[in-house]
Amino acid sequence: MFNETLKQKHMKPYLIGLFLLLSTASWAQNTEGVITYERKTYWTKLITRLTYLSQEQKDRAAQTWKNDDESKEKMTLTFTENESLYTYAGQGETEDGRYSWRNSELVLYRNFAKDQKIDLIEMLGKTYIVEDSLRTPTWKIGNQIKDIAGYVCMKAETEDPIKKQKITAWFAQDIPVSAGPERYNGLPGAILELSLNDDVVIEATKVTLKKVTPEELKLPKMKGKKINDAAYDTLIKQHIAESMTAHRNPYWALRY
C-alpha cells in the first residue's frame, strides 16, 4: 500500500518536493519486506558456453529454439536490515500450472550482522549445507540508471571466477539493505536485477515493503552434507571440468 503511494509520487515530478520531505520518514521502513523475482534462463545462450560444442551446433540450436528459448521460475527474497532469505516462490510448474515438477532444494540465508551465511543447496544429485562467513565480491559501480519495479537502480558489476560468469547487478538506492538474489549481496541497496552472463536474468517483478516476522526468515529443517565455501567451490569446479570433458551440460545438475 505504502509502495503504491510512493510510486504515484514518482509519476508526478512536480511532487518531487513533497516526496523529498516524505523520503526521510519513508526510508526507515524501506529496510524490511519481500521481493518477488522472475528468473529467466535463456537456454540457447547458455549452451554457447559449452566448450565442446561446435559453432555449427550452437547456431543450429539458436535457430531451432528461437521461439522456445526461455524458461521462467519465480523466486522470493525476504529481507530485514540484518537478515535475508532467498528461495522459490511456490512450486515448479508450467505457466498454466497444469504440470508441476519437483524443485531442487534451495534456501539461501544471510545474516549481515553476524557475518554469516547458511545455504541449503541440492546439486549434483545430493543435498549440501554450505556454512561460512559472508563473502562480498568486488563490485564495480557504473553510472547507468534503470527503473525496475518502480525503483531507480544503479548498476554494479563483478565476476564469478569459477563459473566464468560476468555478473551485472542493479541495486535500488531506496532499499538500503545489502541483500540480493542467488548468492549475491553486499551493495548499498537491495539488488533488484541480476544478470549472470545474460544467460540467466533474475528480475524483480514486485517489491512489497512490510514488517517481516522472524518466522518468515526461519530456515527449514535441513538434512545434508555440511561443507564450507571452499569445498563448495572445489565441488562445482570439478563437476564443470568433468562434464565438459565428458561432453555433457554441467548445468543440468547445477544451478547456473
Partner: peptide, 20 residues
C-alpha cells in the same frame, strides 16, 4: 529535469541509462 525524470519512471522496464 522533469522530462528526464518522467522518462526514468514512465518507461518502466525500458532500459534507459544516464551517463553524466
Amino acid at each position: 529535469t522533469k522530462e528526464l525524470f518522467e522518462v526514468v519512471v514512465k518507461t518502466a522496464r525500458a532500459p534507459l541509462t544516464i551517463k553524466g
